[in-house]
Design a protein around this nucleic acid. Structure first.
Lengths: 211, 211
DNA sequence: TATAATACTGAATGAATGTTCAGTGATATA
DNA sequence: TATATCACTGAACATTCATTCAGTATTATA
């Protein structure tokens, strides 16, 4: 790894870096669209090649392989989601509201961003290299941790009264994961209603017992 | 379709019918094991051929194609499940207990019967012929109807007090669907605990508000 | 300017595998 | 016994597709 000298060399070194970044982005953008539209397996490298207008070799120059390209897209999507959520989160005061806001955003994001379908196809595919398995595990842990933190905050603020936080974090993720699969068979409004109802049930399910 | 004359011809006609049934069963059994072990896509017809000891053509003589064979296994599994549940159900008096019993049985069945994994792979695969899509839709509707009926009974017996029965039926199925996917990353005991906790949350989530 | 490093090409590779079909032997029917 | 139906064979077919790599073009370095 070389660091360009900031005075003279910068523009020159950047020309390559910029080119790489630009190409990577072009590939990623085309791939994202195709994966979302056709699914993971049904999208051939050849399709991406045509869409980008570059060679197949170039894709393998910038990404390890098809799996690596797809994982890159998923990780990009996750960081983007986190970034946006950090802004939205501030709009809600209670954790209960945050959870409602979260599923609302999640539902909108998934409904507008059909990479979910390809992701489910990818995650549920049985044949996976160990390094891929590992990157998926990290992602799943991330989702559950996200839930855990939210739930913990709700406990701290005395909105819920659960003890098994990790367990409930998985329950919540399961609910949302299953729902995202069912929502494929629904209209938009129906799907949004289902997400809200799911959160109703979950929140009542972890609510403090009324005395 | 010819009906064998019961007196003289029976044994003769049955010889073919029996052979067909026997072969179909042999293929189904071998395929079930392989799909469960290796997943849907990773199981080649060739593998099944080797396991059964018959020709590839024979499989296509008895089943329309690979998808048809797999769907046959799923439908077989479902009817078996229903048949067993009908017996078990009687052990539980309240609907609440029935629901706990149901997830318990579901969890055991899925943990012992790893066809679930292949099923998820199959269901989540993007490329499906229209007739396959249809058979899957029928199955999914069946799962939701099953939940709906249980919930309706719980309403009739005044155990719950929900109005949107169909919606809750989907929520319950989502929860169980998502959970079955998470449980792949768990130990057996952990998975069983997760199923129970899920039902705790769901039941409290639809419980009558205490006055 | 010469050399090195980088970005990119695209045809060739190579393996996997679902499905078919002409043909064979066994079984039922007349 | 002759004919028709059925259960079965298995090699060949047809297609798909991720991945590689020897070589070219562009850009940076000394």
């Amino acid at each position: 790894m070389q660091i360009p000298r900031s005075e003279s060399g910068e523009a020159c070194v950047n020309k390559k870096k910029q080119q790489t970044e630009q190409t990577k982005k072009k590939i990623a953008d085309a791939a994202r669209g195709l994966f979302a539209q056709k699914g993971y397996k049904a999208t051939a490298i050849e399709d991406i090649v045509k869409a980008v207008g570059c060679s197949a070799g170039n894709i393998y120059y910038h990404f390890k392989n098809k799996e690596g390209l797809f994982l890159h897209l998923l990780e990009e999507w996750n960081t983007e989601w986190d970034r946006n959520w950090l802004v939205k989160e501030k709009l809600y005061l209670t954790i209960t509201d945050k959870l409602y806001g979260m599923v609302e955003y999640l539902a909108h994001d998934q409904l507008n961003h059909p990479l979910t379908r390809a992701a489910d196809e990818f995650f549920n595919n049985a044949e996976k290299a160990p390094d891929v398995e590992e990157r998926i595990n990290v992602m799943v842990k991330g989702y559950i941790d996200f839930n855990r933190q939210l739930l913990q905050k709700g406990i701290d603020s005395h909105e819920f009264e659960i003890t098994n936080v990790s367990g409930h974090a998985i329950i919540l993720d399961s609910l949302l994961l299953g729902l995202s699969q069912h929502c494929r068979r629904m209209e938009r409004d129906e799907a949004l209603a289902a997400y809200r109802l799911a959160m109703d049930v979950f929140l009542q399910g972890i609510a403090k017992p009324k005395h």
